[in-house]
């Protein structure tokens, strides 16, 4: 009879434990972290294959791939955390291509000393967001850097999806006369982060709008309206995203300030800090540009979805050799809505 004792590993201490260099070593400690935390939380057959990469079934349609790194500070904020944000952000990047998001990868850069309790909270939030979205995290990676060389945790996610035939959304497709639609209020995510960072409190807390938009997008595609482009206005906000599209398509735009909704606490915080909500990041909103004849139908389809209830037509595309995005102000004047210059809010997502 063998006297070799069965292997025993003391379970990870998720209450008081911290990440140390061995969790990135490739050895037993790393394997334990993967098994007890990542594999347990993300649990799905592709991840369970346990190989260096996930072997995925053949997909129908053109593939879309998008990647996004997340360095937000603070890691936990009203309405979300870096975990769900990293899932939503990449799903949205895939979905705005008109694709059905299918799979995600997740790559973690952890700082030595990071509490396991916080890491578990983040990973569970990711797992929950991925499950709710129906998009499994099928492969991943973990690296650990010495204390002082990172800031807790950075997460990079990559997403893959397929675009059905007949759908071609791109920033260079818009043409004069097209209508510009926005799915809701702007500035919520950026101001949630900033107000938390600066310890600003308002009568109503500012909650991040982080959300996966593929459901809303599916409903919009189902409406049958000819969409030119979809985009989620994250860093740089609505203004910067519209300037990108105007540049790609070689057109101008005219927005109407009164049609663009801003939640009151967000407006107050922006006022207080001297920021323009047009440039503040969103994580659960999208811009849609469509042919003019379909605009009302598209608007109705958006408003019928919970994430598009406050959707509005905010402007139209113009012929303009200079590519200016302009706005009629609430005062009745006109102004350019330019690219963001410099850095408004660092580490917002």
């Amino acid at each position: 009879m063998s006297t070799v004792k069965p292997a025993y590993t003391r379970p990870l201490d998720f209450k008081h434990g911290r990440i140390d260099m061995s969790h990135g070593s490739g050895g037993r400690a790393m394997a334990q972290l993967i098994t007890e935390l990542f594999a347990a939380a993300f649990d799905n057959p592709y991840l369970a294959q346990g190989n260096d990469g996930a072997l995925l079934p053949q997909a129908q349609g053109r593939l879309v791939m998008a990647t996004d790194s997340h360095v937000v500070s603070p890691l936990f904020f009203a309405g979300g955390d870096i975990g769900c944000l990293s899932v939503h952000g990449t799903i949205n990047d895939v979905a705005v291509m008109g694709a059905t998001p299918l799979y995600l990868s997740a790559s973690f850069i952890l700082e030595e000393g990071f509490p396991l309790a916080d890491l578990r909270r983040i990973v569970e939030s990711m797992a929950q967001a991925a499950r709710a979205a129906g998009v499994p995290i099928v492969t991943g990676d973990t690296k650990v850097v010495e204390q002082g060389k990172g800031d807790g945790v950075f997460i990079t996610t990559t997403g893959v999806g397929v675009v059905p035939d007949g759908i071609h959304l791109s920033g260079d497709q818009t043409r004069p006369g097209d209508r510009i639609l926005l799915s809701g209020t702007i500035g919520d995510h950026g101001m949630a982060i900033l107000s938390q960072r600066e310890g600003l409190t308002f009568s109503a807390p500012i909650v991040s709008d982080t959300a996966a938009l593929h459901g809303l997008i599916a409903a919009m595609l189902d409406s049958g309206v000819q969409l030119r482009v979809l985009r989620d206005p994250t860093r740089g906000g609505l203004a910067t995203t519209l300037n990108e599209i105007a540049g790609q398509s070689g057109v101008g735009m005219m927005l109407h300030e009164t049609a663009i909704k801003v939640n009151q606490p967000v407006e107050a915080a922006c006022e207080f800090l001297g920021l323009d909500p047009l440039y503040v990041a969103n994580e659960g909103k999208l811009i849609a540009i469509c042919a003019p004849e379909g605009a009302d139908r598209l608007l109705a389809a958006m408003r019928a979805h919970p994430l598009g209830r406050e959707a509005a037509i905010i402007g139209e595309v113009l012929a303009d050799a200079h590519g200016f995005v302009q706005m009629t102000t609430r005062l009745g004047g006109r102004r350019v809505v330019d690219w963001l210059a410099g850095e408004q809010l660092p580490r917002i997502c």
Partner: peptide
């Protein structure tokens, strides 16, 4: 003046 387009008025 610039942000609200007052010159137009």
């Amino acid at each position: 003046i610039s942000r609200y387009g007052i010159a137009d008025l």
